[in-house]
């Protein structure tokens, strides 16, 4: 039962990791940009949620209404104001600029909120659970997983069923020709980053309700998201969810063996998959 429990809890944890990963996957798909500050932006969203929730006395889940558009707007401005200038054949500028951004966000948060761990108060939601024949499922992890599935289904729909998604795919395929079709790629990239940070906002809020957080944990969240993307296979959103689940299960099973092994087990499973399936478990089939 312990093992079953570890696997179920790990699967649910994987939902959170998929939320970390989805935004990363999205912008890589559209503009081949890897945002090193992604994890720090998740933490930023958590703090934004915390402050809004305290200031307005609102439930942390309700502040999504404010944090999601705020992060999306920030994403658009960030992309058009800074990141678009870094895109090109050379991979160095986007990497180093987002790396600098990561340090800035982290230290700005440190300046404002100090290094003390904080947590969002979601009342009864945090402890509520349902008993399923000896298996205890927390309502919050189940909700997180459901939201992750919803977010990925939503992104999938946007990508393959809407004009915006067509624009994303067209620009991703061939920037010049997309431009000739009247698509302003700077704007399309801005929208992609806005969408990415909207997902980051959701991820940050659920992170902040689930565990305590401090300004230094962004790097770790980036790594989890990145591992989920690579395990699942680049460019495959459902694969990213599967990657998150595999990572989550590896961690909880590792922790069940020895608490010190939680993170290490996750990394080792990632490296193992990288060794045997370098393109991930479910690489996108083109065509």
């Amino acid at each position: 039962m312990d093992w079953l429990n570890a696997i179920v809890q790990g699967t649910l944890l994987g939902g959170l990791y998929a939320l970390f990963a989805a935004g990363l996957s999205l912008i890589f798909g559209v503009m081949r940009l890897v945002n090193i500050a992604h994890g720090d932006l998740i933490v930023l969203a958590a703090y934004l949620g915390l402050s809004t929730s305290i200031a307005l006395g609102m439930h942390p889940l309700l502040v999504l209404v404010a944090v999601v558009p705020a992060m999306a707007g920030m994403g658009y401005v960030l992309q058009r104001g800074v990141l678009n200038r870094t895109l090109g054949d050379d991979i160095l500028p986007p990497l180093l600029v987002t790396f600098g951004l990561s340090v800035i966000v982290q230290n700005a948060l440190l300046e404002i909120y100090t290094a003390d761990p904080r947590k969002m108060d979601a009342g009864g939601l945090e402890t509520a659970s349902v008993d399923l024949g000896g298996l205890t499922l927390g309502v919050l992890p189940v909700l997180t997983f459901a939201v992750a599935v919803g977010v990925i289904a939503g992104l999938q729909w946007v990508f393959y069923r809407t004009a915006l998604g067509r624009a994303f795919r067209a620009v991703s395929d061939n920037q010049d020709i997309a431009q000739i079709m009247g698509l302003n790629k700077a704007h399309v990239f801005g929208l992609a980053m806005a969408l990415s940070l909207a997902v980051v906002a959701v991820a940050g809020i659920f992170l902040g309700i689930r565990t305590s957080f401090d300004p230094s944990i962004g790097g770790g969240r980036l790594i989890f998201g990145f591992e989920a993307v690579i395990i699942g296979g680049l460019g495959n959103l459902w694969g990213t969810l599967a990657g998150g689940v595999i990572l989550g299960v590896a961690q909880t099973v590792g922790a069940a063996i020895d608490p010190g092994w939680q993170l290490l087990a996750g990394h080792l499973v990632f490296l193992l998959i990288l060794a045997i399936r370098p393109n991930g478990l479910f690489p996108r089939m083109d065509g």
Binding site: R32, I36, I91, L95, I223, I230, L264, H267, F270, L274
Partner: peptide, 16 residues
Amino acid sequence: LRGAYFAIGTWVMAEV
């Protein structure tokens, strides 16, 4: 891992 993903891969290694 290619390009930017290589960068994050090195970070994972450091964590390991």
